[in-house]
Amino acid sequence: MSISLTQEPPKNWLRGVLEPCLLALLNDNERYGYELSALLAEAGLGTVPGGSLYPALLRLEKSGLITSEWKAGDGGPGRKYYRLTDQGNTRLADNADQWLRFSASVQEVLEQGRTS
């Protein structure tokens, strides 16, 4: 078995938290797909391939948590910008509370494992 020497966390960890993270990144600003991908990487969550990113955005949009709008680009075909809805805002707050409780529990279990 090879051990990954990269700084990236395992891919499947991100899967569960991708949608809450996207909601969080869209909280203050409207953003487009590639920008979100870059921000996630910058935040240390690893590279999110487009093949995971866009289906997640589409699901969020379908659930009414975000909306999107096409804006003209510089000569190009334009970009699709995503923005949080009120419903998305509520969900983000809920998710944040849930995650903090959950991660505290995970941390506790892991610390116990390491010290024992």
Binding site: G33, P49, Y54
Partner: peptide, 21 residues
């Protein structure tokens, strides 16, 4: 819409579509 958005992502990320999608 989906195709244009995907194309934009590939373009900006400068990577292979197979790798990304």
């Amino acid at each position: 819409e989906v195709v244009v958005e995907t194309a934009g992502f590939i373009d900006e990320s400068g990577t292979e579509p197979l790798e990304q999608f």
